[in-house]
Design a protein around this nucleic acid. Structure first.
Lengths: 230, 230
DNA sequence: CCAAAAGTGTTTATAGTACACCCATGC
DNA sequence: GCATGGGTGTACTATAAACACTTTTGG
């Protein structure tokens, strides 16, 4: 095997992805079961070594696609974990990313994943490999913080979604119930939702209206430097 | 020279520090003039390669102490920059840190720095090496965002400071003037300041009272899980 | 017609903003 | 005694929180 030489030792560099999914109930994250030591058979965040000619974001995308079959999702960098000894093999520094998967894509994946790749309700996650529980904590904190002032929730729903769906998502992420009327008011006040003519039928009750997120308007607003409170 | 070998190529890993200082006027950052290629003679953020047995935070501390003579300052991780090609020599991924230097320490350093290490008013910073201007932008954004809800401003002042000093700092960071009465109200409402009996004399005007930040109380509050709006 | 969830306004409380005068100090 | 910046309270405005009834739908 070819060898790569350096004048001084280089830590290994990996990317680990905290991938959130939402199906209307609890928040889920995607874990992979390790097939090799260390932490053989333990569940871990999907991750991999950064290729030498690959951007960090590209690495995160590649890992999600290769390991989990997930393409083109929202992702953002979280934090870089580099404590000496966090990997028992060698010095490994890990750049963590958070990814958000839409409900439809989540549903698609549920049945198609291998046994070694599975969704877990956040409340049931325990005993992960490496320092991955710590990474998950950081991701959860980021998601909770971010949803208050940036319209990131839409990345977890489908293109078209109802107000009750959106509210349930917010309640799940924030861990508290919200007043329906105040929620409508706050969300509609942003004027970032487009009301469609479609309705979600099913169930012995009034059909909920579908809304769409106005990506264009949001982009205009962010580009004009206005900082949105959402 | 000894060589270090790996089965696959490893990117180099560095830490770069955005170091803010405040002397009552403009915000300053600390830059070093590069003595080697690439970007020879250009100003750059203090930085260095991460040792194999060294935590990232320790590396940031070491860089600041070795290159700039700065010890024991507030520091936090910002973001990791890893674009392919950001360093023309080889693949280098850089974990950036923000450090805050107290006014007294800032003053001490001003005269003692070498010519190749200097403070620059933020408005005059231009044409930095690598992608360091981008890193600075991220740091400024973080500082502006953070000061609104976390008591991080104290790290830039002395142990004892006056309200007008604190207000000037806030105004400088936020880039807008604040109403004095509202500022007092907001700051004192947090009950995180201890009013000392000392006063800052000098100048043909009423002497300003010195305050201290109540670290203990802040720690209690953060530990009890209350999220502070500051 | 009944159960179940969707949709909608008004009132109250809280937080933020605007604004002006007196006070201590050094020269 | 006057110029300079320090210290303080109140009224107004905007935002957030509390709260209950009507509407649509399927069975």
């Amino acid at each position: 095997m070819e060898k790569f030489q350096y004048d001084y030792p280089h830590p290994a560099l990996t990317v680990d992805c905290v991938t959130f999914g939402f199906d209307g109930g609890e928040m889920k994250i995607l874990l992979v079961k390790r097939g090799i030591d260390p932490f053989l058979e333990k569940w871990a965040l999907p991750g991999g070594f950064v290729n030498i000619d690959e951007d960090l974001e590209s690495c995160a995308s590649r890992v999600l696609e290769k390991e989990c079959g997930i393409k083109e999702v929202y992702q953002e960098q979280l934090y870089t974990f580099g404590k000496v000894g966090r990997d028992p093999r060698e010095r490994v520094v890990s750049v963590s990313y958070m990814a958000l998967v839409r409900t439809d894509d989540y549903a698609l994946l549920v049945g198609n994943l291998e046994l070694s790749v599975q969704w877990f309700p956040i409340s049931e996650v325990k005993d992960l490999a490496f320092d991955h529980e710590e990474i998950l904590k950081v991701a959860l904190k980021r998601l909770r913080g971010k949803i208050r002032y940036q319209p990131v929730g839409f990345e977890l729903l489908n293109e078209k979604f109802t107000m009750p769906e959106l509210q349930t998502l917010y309640e799940t992420i924030l861990g508290k119930s919200l007043d329906r009327r105040n929620f409508y008011k706050k969300i509609l006040a942003t004027e970032l939702l487009i009301k469609t003519n479609e309705k979600k039928s099913g169930g012995a009750h009034k059909a909920a209206n579908y809304y769409q997120f106005d990506h264009n308007k949001y982009q205009e607003l962010t580009e004009s430097g206005i900082n949105l409170e959402f």
